[in-house]
Design a binder for these strands. Structure first.
Lengths: 121, 121
DNA sequence: TCAGATAGGGATAAATTTTTCCCCTATTGC
DNA sequence: GCAATAGGGGAAAAATTTATCCCTATCTGA
């Protein structure tokens, strides 16, 4: 694992939530797990743009941060299921609001993002 | 400016909000601007851990994404003021909820984050 | 005259995150 | 035996984001 050289700030609530939530795929992982897509292979199919590796890494971090639990079934072939912890579930309304704001403003956001993407000054 | 090599996904609201909101200091910038700290030097004092350079860059992106406006006063020494646009203001409740969740769970978050920071397996 | 405040940008280095590639376990089906 | 499926992880490369350093300009105050 990569060892940080710069200690992150943990001064306020925004710092703290950022540490656990702002990985490229974490929000989506939480969202899909909440929707009942709990097995790794299933999550990988749901999020095809992420490499298998990162999803594993980010799932592990979510687990270390106690937002999800990982249950291993001792069967062959192996079976694993992720679930939200009670703590993790409290994040769902927050994520929902993020998604909602994005959906509400979809047209405008797409516009300004693409403008900047196409025309990087 | 850095030119992306990987095109970001813009499929859903979560993708879109991520594009405009998830820079290391952007949420804080929006928050402080909303609180009335509008001049660049003031923002830099409020966020001393960020380099002056990045704040400028991220402010520019916020402007390109039409979340803030930049007003230049033709005086010497130069004076600049950032303000939230109407669009930007709609983000404030969303940011407030993020901060609120972090504050509510401060103790636990600090705990799991530090645990992982100190003990990177 | 020199320091400091104001605002900003270019170039480059460093830090961090994500991707890619390859390897391991074990079973089932062909 | 070989491929596919299930679940992982190490190493290194690539992508991306931040930080550092140095430069511009003008005015004010000591």
């Amino acid at each position: 694992m990569y060892e940080r050289k710069i200690i992150p700030n943990l001064n306020c609530g925004l710092d703290l939530i950022g540490e656990v939530l702002f990985g490229k795929w974490k929000i989506r992982l939480l969202w899909f797990i909440n929707q009942g897509h709990q097995r790794p292979s299933e999550l990988q199919r749901k999020i095809p743009d992420a490499s298998r590796r990162v999803l594993n890494i980010q799932l592990k971090e979510l687990e270390e941060h106690e937002l999800v639990t990982r249950k291993i079934f001792p069967v062959v072939p192996p079976k694993v299921e992720y679930s939200l912890t009670e703590f993790g579930k409290t994040l769902i309304p927050v994520i929902a609001q993020l998604g909602h704001w994005g959906d509400e403003n979809e047209a405008h956001l797409r516009d300004v993002i693409l403008r900047q993407l196409v025309n990087p000054d």
